[in-house]
């Protein structure tokens, strides 16, 4: 079965799945405990506006995605932290507007028809070597930031007001988190596509949280579970000739439903 590894596209795909899993596990854990799944979904979809803009203006689609993802992350952060009425509705609107702008901009782009599907559902079998280096670099940045601010992120996630009273800069940390969500989302779009990003951010973290007793352990297990899902999904999709992104998500979904049958963490004590 390993002869397929002689193909560069397969090696790159497996490696991309591995790299994306690291970011998704670490950031996904924070997304889940901070309850910002909806915002993360919004960032993912709005980023399509950047992909459309890039095609229209003629620059790299992932650069466009990053720029728009960061901008929408900041706007959504401002809206969600402010006292704005119906903040979630506003986030939903940005979600849809970004997506629509992307589609219209690709319509307006002269010449060949852009393969919309590869951004919506991922194009992991076409990940170039350069992207892998970018992913590795982003992982390193995310890892360092989480390492530096771990205790502050933990305090903010657990009890935001107490953290504030203790002088933790909760506002800046929140925006830093959203920035990292934006980076992770754009990275993950290449693997499972922007529609399915949310599954890879949430399912491994959700499963990890059920069976761990610290945020650190939750992050670590989310990374491991995510690696298992992406690698299994890639192999399965290759042998069964299925869409890779969707297969990865369905592998995750199977475990998600099985976990519903397995009892919650019963360990109240661990030394």
């Amino acid at each position: 079965m390993f002869e397929v590894l002689q193909y560069e596209f397969m090696r790159n795909a497996l490696l991309a799945g591995f790299l994306v899993s690291i970011a998704c596990g670490i950031i996904g854990a924070l997304v889940v405990v901070n309850r910002i799944v909806f915002i993360s979904g919004g960032i993912a979809h709005a980023s399509y506006g950047g992909i459309g803009l890039a095609f229209f203006a003629g620059f790299s689609p992932y650069l466009g995605a990053i720029i728009v993802a960061l901008c929408s992350a900041i706007i959504m952060g401002v809206v969600s932290r402010g006292t704005k009425h119906r903040a979630d509705t506003v986030i939903g609107v940005i979600w849809a507007v970004g997506m629509s702008a992307g589609i219209v901009l690709t319509d307006l782009t002269p010449g060949y028809n852009v393969d919309l599907m590869s951004y919506l559902f991922g194009s992991i079998l076409m990940v170039p070597l350069g992207s892998l280096w970018t992913m590795a670099g982003m992982n390193l940045i995310i890892f360092l930031l989480i390492f530096l601010f771990y205790k502050d992120f933990l305090a903010m996630s657990y009890d935001e007001e107490f953290a504030l009273a203790m002088g933790v800069p909760v506002g800046p940390l929140y925006f830093l988190l959203l920035t990292m969500v934006a980076l992770t989302v754009v990275m993950t779009i290449q693997v499972v596509g922007l529609i399915l990003v949310i599954a890879l951010l949430t399912i491994p973290s959700y499963l990890a949280e059920k069976y761990t007793i610290s945020l650190k352990a939750m992050m670590t297990w989310a990374v491991i579970i995510s690696i298992v899902f992406t690698q299994t999904g890639i192999w399965l999709s290759y042998y069964l000739n299925l869409s890779t992104g969707a297969t990865i998500v369905l592998v995750a979904a199977i475990f998600f439903f099985i976990s519903g049958l397995v009892p919650q963490k019963v360990l109240s004590r661990q030394s």
Binding site: A155, Y158, G167, T212, L215, M218
Partner: peptide, 18 residues
Amino acid sequence: GSDKFPVNVLDVVIMGRL
């Protein structure tokens, strides 16, 4: 949001040192 959060007692108390 403290109900299911994966954190132990000592890790919560030490947040008072932040």
